[in-house]
Design a protein around this nucleic acid. Sequence first.
DNA 1: ATCCCGAGGG
DNA 2: CCCTCTGGAT
Length: 214
Amino acid sequence: MAKQLDYHTIREIFRRFQAAEPEPKGELEHVNAYTLLVAVALSAQATDAGVNKATRALFKVADTPEKMLALGEEGLTEHIKTIGLFRQKAKNVIRLSRILVEQYDGEVPSSRAALQALPGVGRKTANVVLNMWFEQPAQAVDTHIFRVGNRTGIAPGKDVAAVERAIEDHIPAEFQRHAHHWLILHGRYICTARKPRCGDCIIRDLCPYEEKTL
DNA sequence: ATCCCGAGGG
DNA sequence: CCCTCTGGAT
């Protein structure tokens, strides 16, 4: 866990991220709030690419909670068999869809409490939906952000909650909105878990991480 | 702390 | 082979 970087260094880092990618976007495919929620729930411990491959066909059949219930747990399971943890996820998505229909008129609720009360939806998933769909200043900390935050010192912390706080406390307000995707994309393509591509990193000179292989 | 759990990469 | 992937519930 690196030491917390100072304000000026962090500002410079995000200026570079912004210059390289002015409008960073997530890579999870979705067509509405419901499909975003489902896609994020399915993405736990799975790659976006793998989730997209399954949801491309799934969302043609079921892009609303009503249609998902019509498809049923068996049908849903067939669509997401290629995704890890598929049995639990299928069960959760069906139960969650039932709650949306029965309690929210088929809509996706916009409060963190309501989102997190849904089965299979924890703080991280709720934060992604709040940030991406409802445009609220919520910082979801996933495996990439946890790793990048700690390696670089942008947002170090011993657990997810500490990293989330560090992001809110140390990333300048002007960069908060897109910080989530900048950090994720950086973690996915450059600051990878096993063999980081420090040679291609645009913030290498500002990073304390020592394993500068390749 | 442990379980869930398939695909892809190295 | 082993590790990692936008975690959540128990």
